[in-house]
């Protein structure tokens, strides 16, 4: 959902966000809002800036200009110097969950230790409580019994579910998913999407970058179609995916229709 929604204050609000890499623009003035409990899906061709936008929201990349608000904290960029650094930057990030394309589990820790790491090191939660929390979260993503497995012993789908549990362990205000199924074998995609679908139904606020169009239609409240660094079209999932108004959206989606991806929806 973009634009100015005056009825309720969105959980996440991005205003006029610009990200340039040197002189190369990646995101060229994007505004969007995500309400509490809403699932927003970002789609678009490779290089359209959707991953960069996500990484900017998490401040893994520093935006060139614009404003980002998450919960009560609003940060403006482009005023010269770093908007946030050190402990304050770390504190901001700790409130946002991020799941990466390549899982990025910590290989020297077991699944349970991976999930406990944020609460123990960042939140300084007592180990026993963190262990309980971790076991609960692993069970929720269908990995009870895998607590003591190391990442190398897990399948891609299992590893990605551990990564989701690891992000959830910080009780984030919003969860960001950056093409989390792109690196998975096709037969493992379903188990990860099922976990995400459950999160959406449980009222987790989510921004999801994905190429799984059928999944987007299934889970998204709103869909944003990004192209060349701007949001070219946005609206309710049914509208954007079924009756796209923008010719570029139509062209993008037609490839998925041809591939039969939409038919497997539901």
């Amino acid at each position: 959902m973009t634009g100015n929604d005056t009825r309720h204050r969105p959980m996440v609000e991005v205003t006029d966000l610009v990200k340039n890499y040197g002189s190369v623009p990646a995101v060229r003035g994007v505004s969007l809002g995500v309400a509490r409990g809403e699932v927003v899906v970002l789609i678009g061709p490779s290089g359209c800036g959707k991953s960069t936008l996500l990484r900017c929201v998490h401040l893994l990349e520093e935006p060139t200009s614009g404003t980002i608000r998450v919960g009560a904290q609003e940060i403006s960029f482009g005023g010269g110097g770093k908007a946030l650094a050190g402990r304050r930057l770390a504190a901001y990030r700790s409130r946002i969950g991020m799941v990466f394309q390549h899982f990025e589990l910590f290989p020297h820790m077991t699944a349970l230790q991976n999930v406990m790491e944020g609460p123990v090191t960042v939140k300084r939660i007592d180990r026993r409580a963190a262990s309980e929390l971790g076991r609960g979260l692993l069970a929720n993503v269908g990995l009870a019994g895998k607590e003591e497995s190391y990442p190398a012993q897990l399948s891609g789908g299992q590893a990605q579910r551990v990564a989701i549990a690891r992000a959830l362990a910080m009780s984030p205000e919003v969860m960001l998913f950056d093409e989390v199924t792109s690196a998975l074998d096709p037969e493992l995609v379903g188990e990860v999407l099922a976990v995400m679908r459950q999160l959406g139904e449980d009222g987790t606020t989510m921004i999801v970058v994905t190429h799984e169009i059928a999944f987007a239609r299934d889970i998204a409240d709103h869909v944003l179609f990004m192209d060349a660094g701007v949001i070219a079209e946005h609206g309710p999932a049914d509208e954007v995916l079924a009756r796209p108004a923008n010719p570029r959206t139509r062209a993008f989606l037609s490839r998925f229709h041809h591939a039969g991806a939409l038919r497997s929806a539901g």
Binding site: A90, A91, Y92, R93, S94, I96, F106, G118, V122, A167
Partner: peptide
């Protein structure tokens, strides 16, 4: 880089 980002994403400081 991914390991650094995963740590940062959890809210870790450089020292952590």
């Amino acid at each position: 880089r991914g390991q650094w980002q995963a740590g940062r994403a959890l809210g870790m400081t450089y020292a952590q």
